[in-house]
């Protein structure tokens, strides 16, 4: 009998296990799906970089055995943009939380989508700022109790697929941590796209979100995802808003093509400089 190991093990910094994520937290499950997507799509790991912001999800950068960068809060996309522009051959993945990407980093999110920077963004949405104690995030659904809204949240929430579609993303999908195979497939699909791809994964934070809202533990939340999710590929993202206990619309919402930022830069320079425009042959960084 040969000595088999977990197929995700080669993608992990095993010496850092067990990780800090709580029992029933969904972040680790999303990492499994990410690793399977890397295996399936045979991505060259030498030309792959993963960038995270700050938060429980931001910890992913420290646990994957890849070139990875744990950046400052909200700035994963700017760092990733720099990486991609300096070394266009890299596949650059941004792996971060809903708060990091859509609150403090919300400005970068919409402008990277608008400019169609070739990034694969995986947003683990646990509807809260988890790492700092469960404060209301732009994604927290109405009425949810959080540490900053002890009588319930009254702010309208961002519907992230709708936001990034409107801003210009070329690939937009949403799954939950229950949809492991679909999520892996979506991530693999995003690697085939050139341009700004955004995959939202709804994920339990039993410690801070589910507990305060009396929604049970991680497993109860997974059962809720199983029961209340509706796969609607191509659904208008305007209909994909989330509520505390209602239906969760999942699926691939947007898959379209338009020139990415670097293609636009080259086209613009060629148009205005004519013969004086010389394409740089080989990038200096490798």
């Amino acid at each position: 009998m040969s000595d088999l190991t977990n197929p995700v093990e080669p993608f992990l910094r095993s010496d850092r296990m067990p990780h800090i994520w709580c029992p029933g937290c969904g972040i680790g499950t999303t990492v499994n799906c990410f690793a399977r997507a890397l295996i399936e799509s045979k991505i060259d790991l030498e030309h792959l970089a993963l960038v995270s912001g700050i938060g429980c999800t931001g910890r992913v950068a420290g646990y994957v055995k890849l070139d990875s960068f744990h950046t400052t809060h909200g700035r994963a996309i700017p760092f990733a943009t720099g990486l991609k522009l300096a070394n266009p051959k890299l596949n650059v993945v941004v792996y971060s939380g809903d708060g990091d990407l859509s609150a403090i980093g919300g400005n970068h999110l919409i402008h990277a989508a608008r400019r169609n920077i070739d990034l694969k963004v995986i947003c683990v949405n646990n509807l809260i700022y988890a790492m700092t104690g469960g404060q209301t995030a732009p994604t927290t659904p109405g009425h949810a109790i959080t540490s900053t809204s002890p009588y319930g949240t009254c702010e309208p929430a961002f519907n992230l697929p709708h936001l990034v579609e409107a801003a210009g993303a070329v690939y937009v999908a949403r799954w939950t941590t229950f949809h492991v195979r679909q999520l892996a497939r979506s991530i693999a699909e995003a690697f085939q796209k050139k341009g700004f791809s955004f995959i939202e994964v709804i994920s339990p934070c039993p410690t801070l979100y589910q507990r305060r809202n009396k929604l049970g533990d991680g497993l109860d939340t997974m059962k809720y995802y199983k029961e209340k999710s509706k796969v609607r590929h191509g659904a208008p993202t305007s209909e994909a808003g989330l509520t505390m206990t209602g239906e969760i619309v999942v699926g691939k919402f947007v898959d379209r093509d338009r020139p990415d930022y670097q293609t636009l830069v080259r086209a613009q320079l060629a148009e205005s400089l004519g013969d004086r425009f010389v394409e740089q042959a080989e990038m200096v960084c490798s």
């Binding site: 990780h19 994520w21 937290c25 680790g28 499950t29």
Partner: peptide, 12 residues
């Protein structure tokens, strides 16, 4: 599937 679901990379 156990391996894909396990958030702790503890089963496969």
């Amino acid at each position: 599937l156990c391996g894909m679901y396990c958030p702790d990379f503890a089963i496969y």
